[in-house]
Amino acid sequence: MPGAAERPLSPHLQIYRPMLTMMMSIVHRITGVALYFGTLLPVIWLLAAASSPEAFATVNGLLGSWIGLIILFGYSWALIHHALGGVRHFVWDFGHGFGPQARELLAKATIGGSVVLTVLLWIVIAVVKG
């Protein structure tokens, strides 16, 4: 902008030493973007079910293959991690969990919780579906 004063820029990402809370913020955004495109998976699956037995067999076969199941496992982890990250934001919105110990604990609980819940989910699916 002509005539605008040269202002100092605030330090960017690469200036800081990587920290857990910072990584969790980045992962929250990455999982959000992944889920944005990942929503196509259930929507295409539903569209196939609404179209024809052949279309459903194709899509269901792809999702049920080893690669498909790995992608679905990743999708479910991203969803759970992003959801727990959202809960963490709710905690912060109410003014709690900003202390040095509390925020580290919340970050670790989000990682641990997302891994445990994802594994638990797939155990439940395996048990229910035989």
């Binding site: 929503t39 196509l40 259930p42 929507v43 539903l46 569209l47 079910a49 609404a50």
Partner: peptide
């Protein structure tokens, strides 16, 4: 994406 998914759900 929302319209496609909603259409599939409603159609079924």
């Amino acid at each position: 994406v929302g319209a496609a998914g909603a259409f599939a759900i409603l159609k079924i």
